[in-house]
Design a protein around this nucleic acid. Structure first.
Lengths: 328, 328
DNA sequence: GTGAAAGCGCTAACAT
DNA sequence: ATGTTAGCGCTTTCAC
């Protein structure tokens, strides 16, 4: 059942060739304990000559750690959202690769996350968990057995480090831009209200509008393009004088663009539109979408690294940059 | 160093509780060997009562197999192409999850794939490899040690099972559609010519054109939207009477749309445009893009399953379906 | 600093 | 059908 090919060279072969015991070879090769310089050299060169590749499985089993990082996704409108997920996965995979750690995907029902989380905690092949766009409830449901090896993309907690873009700042900048360029009746299409990460942009929008003495006009969406299409219709229906729409993400904004086009509303002439994320297609829409960057890959990589390194909890926010194009 | 929480329940605990030997418990729990019905029942109920979760690491180490499936990507224009990669990753991850197997990403330099492939073969944590959009060279460079646990998305070989969409058929259908709807000067923007998976659509295009007695007009691209923009310009420059452009993928087609818009060329009035993949944003462009489906997730899932199950080599093609929208 | 020995949790001959 | 015995390849006390 074992793989074909020449028998794998194990640490014992290296130890033998270097004329030391297996323990010493292990100490040298796995970083840790004390070893004399000469032993170090002999072991390392023997390893190199033999082409020794440590077996991450054996190592993990001996150390009592897992070999995969699980990305736990709270169920959201998957379709358009999964370009995002792809970024997250590849960012995490990149960081895990050098350690021989793989990445897995796990859906978490928001109402009943305990079960799946408990199962992950019990699964000894799980090195750690990255929570993606999660909720306070889910955060609270994280079992103790997972402590120290959980990170969150989005909101965090005193014991769970969080990694997120500064989406409050980004939203402020975007809405301010709309205001500064003369827009006054600015509506926003948000995400689902149970999703914490969609709350901060809303607060930012509200606060900018309040400061400007303007009314807030909010329509609920779900990050999908479809919700952008529906949302745009609803906005124009409820507030016909709207002259700008700020969407929670680019996918939604592209939906808005599409709906406005269908209505014969010109952008940015009649209505300005702004999104958030700067996805590749934002540059290709007609008109090209004004938005703000969202370094998803970097964020995911950091979160995965935190899990691998058992990082202590301290929230990290990544800056977002305005990208001015044609739509606003 | 081991994880916190109540000590893991191992197969020994189950065996003890069931009053059988560890081997019998193993036989029952891991599917294989013969066991009496009564023993089976006792073991299973003991396992259930104790909440036994097998440790995939220990299992893999004992069986001599790995715990992660590596997705080996030949370097391509990553940017726009990685929505595709995301689909592949999540499709593969889904299939691997139940076995406690993770997914990893690995870039393969096309000219020197031997090194990375050899390293993967030597890494005992690697369960198998899925080659993504690979070349004959890379296929030939697959080490024997990987035989039986490699699958390919794209071209295959007598010993490597392949999984792909019927992109020849899809291209035929698309080009035929253009022809049937009255287009005569049909150009195509292709992928890089070293990429086998971009060759079959080109052949299909050529053959339809030949059958119709029309000239082939081909411009090289690279799957990116940028190459669609450049390509459209080049096409119109070289053959001003072009009345249709078929792009190798939707990203490129969206680039074409964007360039034509800049030129003031109407779509589909002056020029019809068709893509391939049916990505989510294809429905949102102006005009909405005519294209054909590409079941990337299903293909990836099948390829990953083939690796897990050590499937024999036999090429599988997935059907594509025409999606008629506004652009053609 | 180094070696001997005991596992990590499981599977797989090999007997019985 | 079941138990016994070895490992899989590595880390890690524990003595020396």
């Amino acid at each position: 059942m074992a793989y074909l090919g020449r028998a794998a060279v194990t640490i014992d072969h290296v130890a033998l060739a270097a004329g030391v015991s297996r323990s010493t070879a292990s100490r040298v090769l796995s970083g840790g304990g004390s070893a004399s310089t000469s032993a170090g050299i002999r072991v390392r060169s023997a390893a190199a000559k033999l082409g020794y590749v440590p077996n991450p499985l054996a190592r993990a089993l001996a150390r009592g750690v897992g070999t995969r990082v699980v990305l736990a996704v709270s169920s959201v409108s998957a379709d358009l959202h999964d370009p995002y997920l792809g970024q997250v996965m590849s960012g995490a995979a990149e960081v895990c690769e050098p350690e021989g750690v793989g990445v897995s995907l796990q859906w978490l029902p928001l109402d009943a996350a305990e079960g799946p989380l408990a199962r992950l905690a019990a699964d000894r092949s799980v090195r750690g968990v990255v929570l993606i766009n999660t909720t306070e409830n889910v955060l609270a449901a994280v079992p103790n057995a997972l402590r120290g090896r959980v990170a969150s993309i989005g909101i965090g907690s005193p014991s769970i480090p969080s990694f997120d873009v500064d989406n409050g700042g980004a939203a402020s900048a975007l809405v301010s831009h709309l205001h500064v360029t003369g827009r006054r009746q600015i509506a926003m299409i948000t995400g689902p209200d149970w999703l914490p990460c969609s709350r901060r942009p809303v607060e930012a929008y509200r606060s900018v509008m309040r400061a400007a003495g303007l009314p807030a006009r909010i329509v609920r969406g779900d990050f999908s393009a479809a919700s952008g299409q529906d949302g745009a219709l609803e906005v124009l229906n409820r507030w016909p004088d709207t002259d700008a729409i700020f969407a929670i993400c680019d996918a939604t904004a592209l939906g808005v663009l599409s709906a406005l086009r269908g209505l014969g509303v010109t952008v940015p002439g009649d209505v300005a539109v702004a999104g958030f994320d700067d996805i590749p297609f934002a540059a290709l829409s007609a008109p090209a979408l004004t938005t703000a960057t969202h370094p998803v890959r970097r964020i995911a990589a950091a979160a995965a690294a935190a899990v691998l390194d058992q990082m202590a909890a301290s929230p990290i926010e990544y800056p977002s940059r305005l990208v001015l194009r044609e739509s606003a």
